[in-house]
C-alpha cells in the first residue's frame, strides 16, 4: 500500500511543478464556466425544471463540469499519456519487468495526478463559481463523502478507458484516430457537452448506464441531491461495476500485449 501511495505522491508533486500551466488552466476553466452559466441560465429560464434541474442546479452543474474536466482527464492526458509514449519507444518493456503490476503502477500515478488537479483546477473554479453565481453545496458531510468517492471512481473509470486507448499503441503505429474518437465520446456521453438528464428519451436512459456517465453526471447528481439514499448507492455501485469490469478488460489486453512484446520482441 505504501508503495502505491509513494507513486501517487510522486505524480502529485510532479504535476505541481507546472505552476504557470495550472494558473492559466484555472483561468480558462473560469471563463468557460461563466459563459456556460449564462447560457444554461437562459435555457432553464425558458424551460424551468428541465431534466429535473432547477436553474441553480444547472449553474452548479456547469461549475462541477469545469472542476472535473482535468480531474478525470476528460480530454485525455494523465499518466496514460506517458504509457502510450513508452509503448511507442519500446521502453514499456522495463515497466513490464517491474516487480509491481503495470496497471497498478500507472493507476496510482494517475490518482496522484487527479488529486493535484482536484485541489487546484477543481477547487479554485468551484470557489470562483460560488463567488460569481448562486451555486449549491452538498447538503451534508455524508453527501460530500459520497461525492468524493464518486469522483475517485470517475478517475478510475476514466483511467481504464485511457489505458485501453493507450494500449492500442501496442498494435497500431498511429492511434490518433481512436484517441480522437475516445475524446469525442467522453465529451458527449459524460454530460460535458450537455447534461445527460436533458438528453431526449431513449438516448438518455442508454447514456446514463454507459461508463462515461461516471465522469460527470453521477458525481454531479450526488452533489445536487438528485440522487439520495439508495439511488446514491446505485450510482456508486454502477461506477464500481464499470471500474471493475474495465480494469479486468485492461488486464486481459495487457496480457495479450505482453505476449506480443515477448514473442515478437516489440
Amino acid at each position: 500500500m505504501s508503495l502505491w501511495l509513494a507513486i501517487a505522491r510522486r505524480a502529485f508533486r510532479r504535476y505541481s511543478t507546472y505552476r504557470a500551466a495550472t494558473l492559466s488552466g484555472i483561468f480558462t476553466n473560469c471563463v468557460f464556466g461563466v459563459i456556460y452559466s449564462y447560457v444554461y441560465l437562459a435555457v432553464w429560464a425558458a424551460a424551468p425544471g428541465a431534466g429535473g434541474y432547477s436553474s441553480q442546479d444547472a449553474v452548479t452543474y456547469v461549475w462541477l463540469g469545469q472542476a472535473l474536466i482535468m480531474t478525470v482527464a476528460l480530454w485525455g492526458g494523465g499518466t496514460t499519456e506517458e504509457l502510450a509514449e513508452r509503448i511507442r519507444t519500446g521502453d514499456v518493456v522495463i515497466d513490464l519487468y517491474r516487480p509491481v503490476g503495470l496497471i497498478g503502477w500507472y493507476l496510482a500515478g494517475d490518482l496522484g495526478r487527479a488529486a493535484y488537479h482536484l485541489l487546484t483546477r477543481g477547487l479554485v473554479p468551484l470557489l470562483v463559481g460560488a463567488l460569481l453565481f448562486d451555486i449549491s453545496a452538498p447538503d451534508g458531510p455524508v453527501t460530500a463523502v459520497a461525492v468524493l468517492l464518486s469522483v475517485a471512481l470517475a478517475v478510475v473509470v476514466s483511467f481504464t478507458m485511457r489505458f485501453l486507448v493507450a494500449a492500442l499503441a501496442f498494435w497500431l503505429l498511429d492511434a490518433t484516430g481512436p484517441r480522437l474518437l475516445a475524446v469525442v465520446l467522453a465529451t458527449f456521453l459524460s454530460g460535458m457537452a450537455v447534461p445527460l438528464v436533458i438528453f431526449p428519451d431513449g438516448l438518455r436512459e442508454v447514456a446514463l448506464v454507459l461508463p462515461w456517465a461516471s465522469f460527470l453526471q453521477t458525481p454531479a447528481d450526488i452533489w445536487l441531491g438528485e440522487r439520495t439514499g439508495w439511488s446514491t448507492l446505485g450510482g456508486l455501485g454502477l461506477q464500481v461495476f464499470w471500474a471493475g469490469a474495465l480494469l479486468a478488460l485492461c488486464a486481459v489486453v495487457l496480457t495479450r500485449a505482453t505476449r506480443k512484446v515477448v514473442v515478437q520482441g516489440g
Binding site: 447560457v39 425558458a46 424551460a47 484516430g177 480522437l180 469525442v184 465529451t187
Partner: peptide
Amino acid sequence: WTMTIGAFFTTALDFVGVWILFGTIDGLG
C-alpha cells in the same frame, strides 16, 4: 482521412449538443 472525418464528426456532435438544448426549449434569448 480518419482524422478529417473524425474532426467533422467531433464538431458535428458539438452542434448536436445545441440541438438537444433546443429539445427542451423553443427559443434561446
